[in-house]
Design a protein around this nucleic acid. Structure first.
Length: 479
RNA sequence: GGCGGCAUGGCCAAGUGGUAAGGCAAGGGAUUGCAAAUCCCUGAUUCCCCGGUUCGAAUCCGGGUGCCGCCUCCA
């Protein structure tokens, strides 16, 4: 078995190939104009899964993700607040990184801002002008001529001819400068709305078009031939199609060996939208759903990345008055993680036997293989998680084992977590007061002072600490 | 109109020809001084509907219904 990844261009799973060089991985990052929402976060969690899986399988990976810090939305936001563009985008870059950190998303090796590569974008535009696949319009904008790129449409499987017709004739009035409706802007000539956001270029003062930054940044940091390029399904067209066109027209070689796209997230069975009031950020889920970021991570990675996933919500009320009363998927995540945590926590305590029971190591080996096969099969996390839960049930039925077996299971657990990033419990500790109460509770129990023990336990419960008596001592959990 | 994804037990969710993984919730039981902790057990003769192919289909083909996405800057 070897790693299979579903390639959007080929429309099938293909062998990724041997790890014979550092993997050049590029993913489309956020536009930093607001807090990202959980649908966005599903994409970043997918990139993280991809990167972690590749590394876990022995590949060396160089991961580059751009930050889009110049476009209509960032310019509008900065102008509305009367602050410099960079100040505005830095703010949302920080909130984005905070969310990623909370969700245990590994930082890409390089996270370049679009505005840090203006010279590269200008150079790429000149290159495309020189080869004749781009042209200047009267106002000083530069467009890519899709008719000059024969492969246009190969990723999204849309025919250039069909595209010419447009979607119900939605060719905007202000697009008259373009020779063809689907030609896209490489460079946008300065307009009033851009304020002071503009750069000088040989072909005119203005700012880069959206698609250009990804090609320029990929070229700059990874070279002109990527191993894998990923993004959300909505980016297939036009964004990635345009990236392919401008990149390959310039370089003459295949831009990316693999194109991976994650499906969208539904919330409460509906697409997210502000009008439906089911539009949430990570912070919203933590507050409204009373969930930890780890639980959110679990909920968002528990479905396969290429399946539409539903964050289940139970609502109360109708229409305008509708509000969420329970985030079922987060409740699921909490329960599932509790089971996994308890298993891991008790492995040592239950190592009371001089030897591992018959079949114990075979069950572990089976889980290891199942987990590995699941990840290699297009990053099938649901199957990988199932392998873990099956091991939990298998091992629990064994009753007791030896220290060596406990250590072997722990090693597997830690190894699996290099891919999942969700098994390690959130760092937590009892405060000194809580620790004192916890010890008093145990002492009272030892003295069979049940009334006293219950009183202390009630205090701990009030502080959100659940205690648990065991034959071999006592444990506590928060929440 | 074109292209694509999806429809599996109350909920989430795997499964692309060989007789329905896993999780949550629920019910039962064990354990426990008590226990919201932990453990075990139970649950779809059936995979949106109608046809078809096949020895055999959730899985393939045809038709239908519903949901989601893209068809110019939205993960």
């Amino acid at each position: 078995m070897a790693l299979l990844l579903h390639d959007t261009l080929a429309r099938e799973k293909r062998p990724f190939g041997p790890p014979d060089h550092p993997i050049k991985m590029y993913t489309c990052g956020p536009t930093v104009y607001d807090r990202v929402h959980i649908g966005n976060l599903r994409a970043f969690l997918f990139y993280d899964l991809l990167r972690r899986s590749l590394e876990w399988l022995g590949y060396e990976v160089r991961h580059v993700m751009n930050l889009t810090d110049v476009d209509d939305k960032t310019i509008r936001g900065a102008r509305r607040e009367g602050v410099p563009l960079r100040e505005f985008t830095e703010r949302y870059t920080r909130t984005f990184l905070d969310d990623c950190d909370a969700l245990r998303i590994l930082r890409p090796h390089v996270m370049p801002r679009a505005t840090d590569a203006i010279p590269e974008m200008i150079a790429l535009t000149e290159r495309l002008l020189a080869t004749g696949v781009a042209y200047r319009s009267d106002d000083g904008s530069v467009y890519f001529k899709i008719a000059a790129f024969p492969g246009y449409g190969k990723l999204s499987h849309l025919e250039a001819r069909t595209l010419q017709a447009g979607a119900g004739g939605r060719v905007a009035q202000d697009e008259y400068d373009k020779e063809s409706a689907h030609d896209f802007a490489l460079w946008k000539a300065w307009s009033e709305d851009d304020g002071d956001v503009a750069w000088d270029a040989p072909f005119g003062r203005g700012r880069p078009g959206w698609h250009l930054e990804c090609s320029a940044l990929a070229f700059k940091h990874l070279g002109e031939a990527l191993d894998v390029h990923a993004g959300g399904v909505d980016l297939v067209f036009p964004h990635h199609e345009n990236e392919i066109a401008q990149s390959e027209a310039a370089s003459g070689c295949t831009f990316a060996r693999f194109w991976l796209h994650n499906e969208h997230l539904l919330v409460g069975g509906q697409k997210m939208s502000k009008s439906l009031k089911n539009f949430y950020t990570l912070g919203d889920l933590v507050t409204l759903g009373q969930a930890t970021p780890r639980e959110v991570r679990y909920a968002l990675i528990a479905a396969h990345y290429r399946s539409p996933s539903n964050l289940a919500v139970t609502y109360e009320g109708e229409g305008e008055a509708r509000r969420p009363v329970r985030f079922d998927s987060l409740v699921d995540a909490r329960g599932a993680l509790k089971r996994l945590d308890a298993f891991r926590r008790d492995l040592r305590a239950r190592a009371t036997s001089p030897a591992a029971p018959d079949g114990a190591h075979e069950r572990l080996a089976r889980a290891r293989t199942a987990f590995h096969d699941a990840i290699e099969d297009d990053l099938n996390v649901p199957r990988a998680l199932a392998a873990l839960f099956e091991l939990v049930a298998d091992v629990n039925r064994l009753g007791a084992w030896d220290v060596e077996f406990a250590a072997a299971v722990e090693a597997f657990w830690d190894d699996a977590d290099r891919v999942l990033g969700v098994l390690a419990p959130e760092a937590d500790a009892l405060s000194p007061e809580e620790q004192a109460l916890f010890e008093r509770w145990q002492a009272a129990r030892a003295a069979k002072d049940w009334a006293g023990a219950d009183a202390v336990k009630a205090e701990l419960t009030a502080r959100g600490v659940t205690v648990q008596a065991r034959k071999d001592g006592a444990t506590w959990t928060r929440g």
